[in-house]
Design a protein around this nucleic acid. Sequence first.
DNA 1: AGCACGCCGACT
DNA 2: GTCGGCGTGCTC
Length: 743
Amino acid sequence: MSGDKTSTVLDDLFGEAQAERETIVSVLVPVAVPTAYTYKVPAGAHVQPGTIVQVPLGSRQVLGCVWDGAPDAAINPKKLKSISRVYDKARPLLPDLRRFVEWVANWTLAAPGMVLRMVLRSEEALEDEPPLAAVRRIEGAAPDRMTPARAKVLDTLSDGMAWTRSGLAGAAGVSASVIDGLLAQGVLEPVLLPGTPPTPKPDPDFAHVDLTPAQAEVAASLRAAFERGNAVSLIDGVTGSGKTEVYFEAIAEALKRGRQALVLLPEIALTEQFLRRFEKRFGTFPAEWHSEITPKKRARTWRGVASGDVRVVIGARSALFLPFEDLGLIIVDEEHDAAFKQDDRVPYSARDMAVVRGHLSRFPVVLASATPSVESRVNAEQGRYARYVLPERASGAELPEIRAIDMRQEGPERGRWLAPELLKAIAQTFAEGSQSLLFLNRRGYAPLTLCRTCGHRFQCPHCSAWLVEHRFQGRLVCHHCGHFEKMPETCPTCSSTQSLVACGPGVERVAEEVQDLFPQARTLILSSDLPGGAERMKREMKLVEDGEADIVIGTQLVAKGHNFPKMKLVGVVDADLGLAHGDPRAAEKTFQLLAQVTGRAGRVTGGGRGFLQTYSPEHPVLKALLDQDRDAFYRMEIEARQAAGLPPFGRMAALILSGPDKAAAEGFARALVRAAPADRSVTVLGPAEAALAMVRGRHRYRLLLIAPRQFDLQGYLRHWLANGPRPTGALRLQVDIDPQHFL
DNA sequence: AGCACGCCGACT
DNA sequence: GTCGGCGTGCTC
């Protein structure tokens, strides 16, 4: 070509000009600073907004992301450092995700870099996956001696595929040393595989789906929501109504449209059964994402999500920050669950931020629950969410019949905890070969121990809560801070022996009573504090599922999602527990818990029965449960909150003010107090969770404000969001404020 | 003197 | 979030 020489000269000139005028870019770094920092781009490196880089920061190297907007030209050029590495194998973070990071940072009052940190949670994912060491049969080669183990290996390899050493040993049912032997003999050869092949894509048409007319109608509405862009739907269905099947249809629709889908679950324990159901419906497993995933799998999923190889993710709240290539749907299952809230570091509600992410990227979000949160019901009633009700069980089984047992009149004798009527029902259920569940939200043997002689009560030395006796462990335990001590023989105050008495029941004590009265029944305690951890829990849940236990005594973990097909009877040992708490959400939490736990009865078979042992059968929360009238509960609760001056969206309006400057934080607090009318000033108080946060927190001065009805917190926040800058260095919004009104 | 610990500001 | 500098107070 004739222009060869000229273009070379031009290139040189251009290169020189570039070298003289060094390029600088904004880089967001994972530290608590308010803005992106500025770095030089090394010659020859190519970066764009979204590119993931490594940069020097102080004395260390950190991950960062090239950010939007002009770099800060006011920074002293002598201070500027160079990007030390460009991760060109990793996909740049897309604009939608970057906007989401900024939105969450703005909302939670966290530094944007701290939110970015939640995105960059797998350093391994930024490199190409290292090749996998494997073995393959060498055509025609044979071992000197054929043994049964060797034959099994060669048989497994007969399809000509390469296997990993451990995978092959496992598949052939031999030890890995057999494979080493065959390698040494030159029958097998080592090969390198290019990482893991992508998992097969879920097939939206894999299974024949048989929906009830009610389910089909909701499924059709969810499919239609894709046409509306950013619609939020609330599936409000009784326990056993088949919400999962319905939202699976929304996932199928997302897949058919070539979009990715994300399912958020409140806790890891629920993923197991979800995976099985998903596989039945879509023919393959979704990718999993939560804190217990191994680094390798984590990296694979992160990369797969970014490249689009992974189509569906099921995960805990942190999955919300995965770098999806083209996310088209988020499902938030058990949307009422408090586990969606993160209280430390960046304090956010994954349910609310899911709605935000859907809004920013214009895709549908589905919230599902048998007991929706009050705020979601309000959002639905006020037209922000579409609400779909599934009032009946998909199996056709009728809902359990629920009865109150008035403990003032029909209670058990002294020192016993189960009323005669409940015992009779347990005996019947046992006789017909079905399961009973006794629910008591109290771990251990007894919540309080005292001395009969001198009245000494065992109290935690650190937090003034009663110490709970755990008889299996022979300990007194504080459920607040974890402090424990050995159960003493004598009273520490008056030294009397045989004088300590247990007051009130825990699950261990109820189990003792059950074993005493039904010695021939197989009883099982399900409580999170028993030794053996998650593995044991999984085993025992399976035992109950398979009908290997007759009477189960459990704490609140039995209320969550597990399917117990043989469970016919549920007895709530103390239905009043939780109603008396000072927590403004006590009624809601109790309603949800009791509705979920009684919903276990006869879920598959029908004919379930529930009993609530109570001293206050007239309490409106219990009445709503007894009457099977969920709407009555929500009506009552929304009215009660309005009367208490809580905001109409049903959530506590709270601000946590914190910062290094105590005077500034207090000054701002006083300004807030002045802004509220004189008759009901802003109350400055510290509920238990805020107090705990204060003790554990790194900030030195912190103040919790609950704004009463007169204070226009919403208006203030709206103004603040629109007009920046922050009133103090570190003002933190509590996770309980609903972002719906700001979208 | 030597160092553990907590506090505090800086980090581009 | 993490590091380094600095002051305090205690031990070898």
